[in-house]
Computed example of a mutant assay.
Amino acid sequence: MTTPTIGHLRAPGANLRYEVRGSGPLLLLIPGGAGGAAAFDGVAAGLADEYTVVSYDPRGLSRSPLDDPEARQSVEQHADDAFRLLELLSPGAPARVAGCSSGAIVALHLLVTHPGRVERVVAHEPPVVEVLPDAAEHRALLARVEDTFRREGLMPAAAVFAAGLKRPGAEAPAATELPPQAAARAERTMGDMPYFLGRIVPSFMAYTPDVDRLRALSDRLVLAAGEESRGELPYRSAAFLAERFGTELVHFPGGHVGLTTHPAEFGELLRKVLSA
């Protein structure tokens, strides 16, 4: 694995830790969940022979601390962090951007607000549930998650959240044996789960994208979803937008976390759609 160069960027209210690999046009990778930059370890090195690959820990995760640990979070603020990284690391040229899950929501907002800085965006399963016809049901899910978190704690709330993302009637997936590095990474992310579930999920899943503006920019937007997550909530959001824009929904290997479970195949397809 290519050893990254570590950098830090001071942003309003936070100190962002980022990693840089390779050379060439800038590719900014925006992680979802609580995984941080390490979520892209399985694909970043392979992309670094073609791009300057930048991954980072979003504000509030363990290696990108907030000045105020209790500060409210917003998609807009996280997208501004991504923009600041582009300004720092690719000041004279537009960049390519790929985001997964909540990171894909950030990527969508970045495209809308700074289209001149973004050449191509790959958004893998952004859970922008407010675009769906049954958005009210998903608001009720988030309310149940928040209530469970407050009354019973992290793990029961996480179980309610995970169940709500699945397609109706779906059985729990069989346990998947992760590669050793991925398993160790998953264990490390648990410390950031209260922050993610308590402050990222409620804010990000209440976000409503500018659909008209995204449609106008859809020639540089790739909406993607996992082969194994058909019918699940984040899949439905991506599919809905692709249908609205009249664009292809690109299917990646695995499910919502195919980046972790199928890193080689995920990375190769990502390379293809970035250069298409």
Rank of each mutant, 00 (worst) to 15 (best):
A39K: 00
L26F: 10
A98E: 02
L29F: 09
A79C: 04
R188W: 02
P58C: 05
G116I: 12
D212E: 15
G164Y: 02
E243A: 11
R144P: 08
R213M: 12
R21P: 03
L221E: 07
Y195H: 15
E146W: 00
L233Y: 08
G36H: 10
S90Y: 10
R96E: 01
E146K: 09
L111G: 09
L214A: 02
G255M: 08
T2V: 14
Y195F: 15
A44S: 13
R21M: 06
G164D: 01
H262G: 04
R84M: 08
G231V: 03
R96P: 00
R63E: 11
T2H: 13
E76V: 11
R117P: 08
A14V: 15
A79E: 03
L85R: 04
G169M: 13
K166Y: 03
L154H: 12
D80G: 11
V53L: 05
C100N: 15
L47M: 13
V145C: 02
S229M: 03
R150F: 04
G254M: 04
P253M: 09
V160F: 04
H251R: 15
C100P: 00
D212Q: 15
V131Y: 02
F204P: 07
A11Q: 10
Y235T: 07
Y195A: 08
A93F: 04
R17V: 14
P263Q: 09
R215G: 13
G255T: 12
A238N: 09
L61C: 06
V122I: 12
L233F: 10
F161M: 09
E50Q: 15
R59S: 01
E130V: 06
L214N: 00
E268H: 13
D80V: 09
D81L: 11
P69E: 07
Y235D: 08
R59N: 00
M205L: 13
P263L: 08
A93N: 07
A123I: 03
E137T: 13
A162Q: 12
P94R: 10
R72Y: 01
G24I: 13
A216T: 11
D49Q: 09
H251N: 06
T148S: 13
Y18I: 14
A225T: 08
S55M: 08
G22M: 13
G92K: 10
T189D: 08
D41G: 05
S203W: 00
E130M: 14
G42Y: 10
V160L: 04
V75T: 09
L270R: 07
T208E: 00
G33N: 06
E19S: 14
L9I: 14
R150A: 15
A93G: 03
A136F: 11
R151G: 01
R144C: 00
G116V: 10
R185Y: 11
A225P: 05
R167W: 07
D80N: 10
G116Q: 14
A158P: 00
D210K: 07
E125L: 06
